[in-house]
Design a protein around this nucleic acid. Structure first.
Length: 111
DNA sequence: GTGCTGACACAGG
DNA sequence: ACCTGTGCCAGCA
């Protein structure tokens, strides 16, 4: 396997290695469980929460984007309706009030 | 290379 | 609960 070199050009549809890795991690999150943006970067051992958010904003549509949320269990504006419909279907535990995911119970341990 | 933009996180108020 | 400022950084024009 040859590492990505500076000569590799990413055409339409191609993703950077970081973006590809972020999507891989999200793909492993089990149904009913979630990960915060920061968690994804941590499990990846690369990047930071904001970078993960950037990737999700651009390419998240290809994966289970609703399983990645903010550190306080809330969902970014504009995504709530679709996300909470998923949580109901997956049985994702929510906090009292139902406006946020209960991270203490829904956070995926990576196993 | 330069300069925004934004699905973040955290500390304060 | 809401807003502001600071630090952060991938993607893109």
């Amino acid at each position: 396997m040859v590492p990505v070199s500076t000569h590799d050009r990413r055409g339409v549809g191609e993703l950077t290695r970081f973006a590809s890795q972020v999507l891989d991690v999200v793909d492993r999150i089990p149904s009913g469980r979630v990960l915060t943006y920061g968690d994804v970067a941590e499990y990846l051992g690369e990047g930071r929460a904001r970078g993960v958010g950037t990737v999700m904003a651009r390419y998240g549509g290809a994966v289970a984007w609703w399983r990645v949320l903010r550190a306080d269990g809330s969902v970014a504006p504009g995504l709530q309706e679709r996300a909470f419909a998923r949580y109901a279907a997956e049985g994702t535990p929510l906090r009292r009030g139902g406006s946020r995911v209960d991270l203490s119970r829904a956070r995926w341990d990576g196993r």
